[in-house]
Design a protein around this nucleic acid. Structure first.
Lengths: 336, 336
DNA sequence: TCAATCAATTTAAACGTTTTCGTATTATTT
DNA sequence: AAATAATACGAAAACGTTTAAATTGATTGA
């Protein structure tokens, strides 16, 4: 590897001059600068990130925290899309992305925070994780610039997909299609689930709908079996709903299976709506009517925010950034 | 950050002794070692990876190269699953994962190889990329231990999903279900596509089938529209196939749409089979009969291989590791 | 003309490790 | 008891940078 020393010898200047020339400092003569840069390029010089990091305490590297346990992180379309966009946005700004989470069963493993310190991440983005995990809290409460996605801590920046407005819009669309008996099979155990559920209640109240309790059923995210079972319950009701909302698109297909199994058609006999807007749903029949979350913007905002926390810590607000989604109109919700 | 110096002061020994104690060198007394380690733990010491890397030229960090252009990398179920498993396997062995590819439009961006040198990756895994890209070649031809997935270079280790056997098994299954008129809408422009196609020809020959030319149609991967169009062509034939193979599961649903649009049912009127085994396909109707590639093993083997190239360069063979998939029997292929 | 200012460059220390080689102490052999 | 070997530890250099402070030489102002 060619180092600054090599360049300095080649140019007959000191290493300091080379460093300053390459970093475009003010106090180096224009001609010297030009010469050094030319030689550097020609010799194929590239900085050594480790040395730079050691000296500056900056790595230009961001840590990303993803849930490992159930492999719902990377392999979940929503989060994968967020990560993809996050990554692009970070790279545009010269930051690389490294995964934080190391498997928990490793002997002598580091905590998330320890791992971050070890690697010297300039900032951290927490994408999808159990937010009650003590290790996550430790990380969030550290002095490392942190941004969370879809979860609100009191001392970090959060990029939030607007689940409240999302549910509101989706419900209004469905209402607009003439539906009055709307059931909601909702996710559980996350603040996102809570927000959607309360937005559901609020919106049906606004719309003056009277939704019976048995129309509201809990079901895990991305669990087609559970959604199937919940759907069956709804179909067994004497007065069955005309439209069913699901925790997410994936689960929605579990519900569709239950519906079809009874010889009912979507959307002719009963309508369904998903949530997320996973891409494959646009290519299947029925094309899911769903709330498409703006994964691209979510990832991008997260990267931008954490980088500005790193680079302008004073002027960057600790705030909650809300990213709106939009109703994607497929053909799973019919007109009544 | 607490450093070795802090520990050395606290213990009244030299930094060298601390380093050796923590790295479990032979020439440090048992009691001293114990004491140093205890103090280190108690002071919350963790090594500084940058300093360590600077000194040892080892980062314990692997670079992963993913295609960016069409975002078919991270957000593609197959590759996401491979990455997920890759990541777990690497982390079990103490290696972290960082993305290599930085966006190509950046001014003054580094080539892949430059990026790897800059970050000092100990090894590289190339997952999904245009293998003809000069930058990829430069990387592959460098002295950095490299493993490719699903592509064979002459000088690197390759982890290959067994597309030949996969196609063979899938065809045999379909044949076993009584199908004789089997069409293949195949992917293009990759060695994977080539291998599958030649395995298709070989297998139909073995089976003594006579497949007319018009049963073989090209179509891009994951392109539902193209698959739809190709399917229509097949359905227009005077003697239509009884089963259609698709480049991948995603595309297969495009084909299913075309079939259903004509009032035909899968698998009663016509059968279809996918390739990949993306998870959602098991939750949809029809459940795709497909060749499920072993993404878990692919990722794991890749991580293991690159790490052994790093840690035992002498004894590690440059070889091709083949990972078999298996026919996943859904209900999209019917009995004839 | 002499000090003062300024621009351009260098010196040297520092970042936190690892590692070679040397030294001091103790144990073993003769 | 002396020589030798083994054991435990330390000194110092090195890795490739950055940066504060010092230095040099030229230019300016009075």
């Amino acid at each position: 590897m060619v180092s600054m020393k090599d360049i300095s010898s080649a140019c007959g200047v000191s290493v300091a001059t080379v460093s300053k020339a390459l970093n475009n400092h003010e106090d180096i003569g224009a001609e010297t600068k030009r010469r050094i840069r030319e030689v550097a390029k020609q010799m194929g010089y590239f900085p050594n990130s480790a040395a730079k990091a050691l000296k500056t305490n900056r790595t230009q590297n961001l840590g990303v925290l993803f849930e490992e346990d159930d492999h719902s992180g990377l392999t979940h379309d929503y989060f994968a899309c967020v990560l993809d966009s996050l990554k692009s946005a970070a790279e545009e700004r010269g930051y690389d992305i490294t995964f934080i989470n190391s498997c928990r069963t490793r002997p002598n493993r580091m905590s998330f925070l320890e791992h971050c310190r070890y690697r010297g991440f300039d900032g951290v983005i927490i994408v999808c994780v159990n937010f009650l995990d003590p290790e996550v809290l430790e990380l969030v409460n550290s002095d490392i610039p942190t941004v969370t996605i879809d979860h609100l801590f009191n001392n970090t920046c959060a990029i939030m997909s607007d689940n409240v407005k999302g549910m509101h819009d989706l419900l209004n669309y469905i209402y607009g299609m003439g539906h009055r008996r709307i059931a909601y099979i909702h996710g559980t155990e996350s603040s996102v689930a809570q927000r959607r559920l309360s937005s559901f209640y609020k919106t049906v109240a606004e719309l003056g709908l009277d939704i019976p309790d048995e129309y509201i059923l809990p079901s895990a995210y991305r669990d087609t079996k559970a959604a199937y079972a919940a759907t069956e319950k709804l179909l067994d009701l004497k007065e069955r709903p005309t439209c069913i909302l699901y925790p997410d698109d994936f689960a929605c297909y579990g519900g569709i299976n239950a519906i079809r199994e009874r010889g009912l058609r979507v959307p002719d006999d009963i309508s369904v709506a998903g949530f997320d807007g996973i891409r494959i749903a646009r290519h299947l029949e029925p094309k899911l009517t769903t709330l498409k979350q703006d994964t691209n913007l979510l990832g991008r905002r997260a990267a931008e925010k954490v980088i500005s926390l790193i680079e302008q810590p004073k002027t960057t607000l600790i705030e909650q950034i809300v990213v709106e989604g939009e109703v994607y109109v497929g053909n799973s919700v019919g007109k009544i």
